[in-house]
Design a protein around this nucleic acid. Structure first.
Lengths: 274, 274
DNA sequence: CAATCTTTGTGCACGCGTTCACAAAGACAT
DNA sequence: ATGTCTTTGTGAACGCGTGCACAAAGATTG
């Protein structure tokens, strides 16, 4: 083949495939582990195993970044850590705010995985006045009223939403209006945002539902009839009112944003289980 | 979105596409909201908007389940809720165990989205003896020693791992050995499991890293040079030892499973930031 | 320097998922 | 009953992602 690629495509817009981008953090994690063990180089085969992917896929992924490997040897760990970090934008500091400091929000605030990757929790925000000033993860919770000022003063461009579903859209709009252009949404709701704003969602119960689907498949493999994998069953469906009851419990935490603006109908559809 | 997926060789027998299965919970959520508002029928267009997807995609998805719509009218909400619930296996009870009751584990235990979808938290398990008996989410935490007995007695087939990365693989193996065949992994580690066991992973920091990538893209759109979206920066990369220090903090919680079996090397590669 | 060995980088083919576009089906009005 | 209107269900085209398989590149050895 031709003598390799030009190291710098120069044109930023020349896209790395989305699927590849999603795997870069995986590689980075594996590489960091190797780095800590002072492993100097690693082959695509070894690294692929460590990252849980196919080696051909890994090589192709890396080829989008440039030719950083040495044939017959492998990849230089430290160099690759740097290149991937740079590509992901982790060589700079990203201040983030977490809105909705309930169980989940607090857990996220305490999550060390953020800080270790260049993400700095700039502020914790909650709509409950009773929460204001209360220290969580060694940081005082601030009231929603301060949201805009916090975003502006800290130059925050990434926001994490961990509010109840009913409050998520409103919080989202305020974040965006204040200048946030990337949102990580933990609320079980579809957020609508203007063009130019990225939203990624993490839904804890959706993953379980997908597992349940496959689990049911397994159980019903031999028998066509209903499987009974465990003692105790229930009907579940057909009792919408239990979902309504879940509304408060459902939310990952106790943010009172929803309560403060309870539309008798407005948040019923939004506050969803699942 | 949450990531994670094990190798799915070929589509199961009369398989619904994996991508479709992953969207069913989304539809179900939107439909439940409509059901609570007593909306009798809904068109593919409306429902697609509510679920945040393309209407053609939605129709094709539903076509895999059967012809449940009425041309010229739309879909019967209640009927569709039932059909999707049944397809996902949510009409039966799924007892789950949560292993690793730290910040994240506790948040999950309190998360109402599980119970409202047919998932019953059968037990909370932690390796820390000091946690044993302590009530979390109205349920006493049990010690890891009881793991196998709990799984067997409750017929648990789905396990949630919220331990530090260093303990995840070991916990995983014990769960599988005890009969668990589906695992939801929150630990930032690649789990290796035997065939027939499904693993889905949720990595909180990977999502942020993906956002950072796009954010960097936006910032560098006009200027070719390094962007400065906020006051304060850092070098981040090139300091592996800070990651090592993160090891304990990194874990979403305080499960001491890792501590109880600290291999001087065994968990170093596993305990990863990111 | 030549031969051999290892591992990368990638051309190519295949399959899955997405989207378009439309005919068929049924509701509804006249 | 007939015609019109709405919306589903799906055939087909397209694009992306994945994995195979191999030639090129460089290390290493004799």
């Amino acid at each position: 083949m031709a003598t390799g690629r030009t190291h710098r495509p120069a044109t930023r817009s020349r896209g790395i495939p989305e699927a590849t981008v999603a795997r870069l953090p995986l590689y980075l994690r594996a590489l960091t582990a190797l780095s800590e063990r002072s492993v100097p180089t690693v082959s695509s085969e070894e690294l692929a195993t460590a990252a849980g992917v196919n080696s051909a896929k890994l090589r192709k992924d890396f080829s989008y970044l440039g030719s950083y490997g040495t044939r017959g040897v492998g990849y230089d760990v430290e160099y690759l850590v740097y290149q991937i970090s740079r590509e992901l934008g982790l060589t700079q500091d990203w201040p983030v705010v977490i809105v909705g400091i309930g169980n989940l929000g607090a857990a996220l605030a305490n999550y060390g995985g953020f800080a270790s990757r260049g993400f700095r929790v700039a502020a914790l925000i909650d709509a409950d006045p009773a929460m204001a000033g209360k220290p969580v993860a060694g940081m005082p919770v601030q009231h929603t009223d301060e949201l805009e000022k916090i975003i502006t003063d800290n130059g925050v461009s990434i926001g994490v939403i961990a509010t109840p579903a009913g409050a998520a859209q409103q919080v989202c709009e305020r974040l965006v209006a204040a200048g946030v252009t990337s949102i990580l949404n933990f609320a079980p709701t579809v957020l609508s945002v203007p063009d130019g704003v990225d939203v990624r969602k993490v839904d804890l119960s959706i993953e379980l539902q997908i597992l349940a689907f496959h689990e049911q498949r397994k159980a019903g493999e031999g028998a066509a009839a209903e499987a009974e994998p465990a003692p105790g069953r229930r009907s579940a469906v057909g009792a919408p009112e239990v979902n309504a009851a879940d509304a408060d419990v459902d939310a990952p935490e106790a943010d009172s944003a929803a309560a403060s603006r309870k539309g008798p109908d407005g948040d019923v559809p939004a506050v969803m289980p699942a």
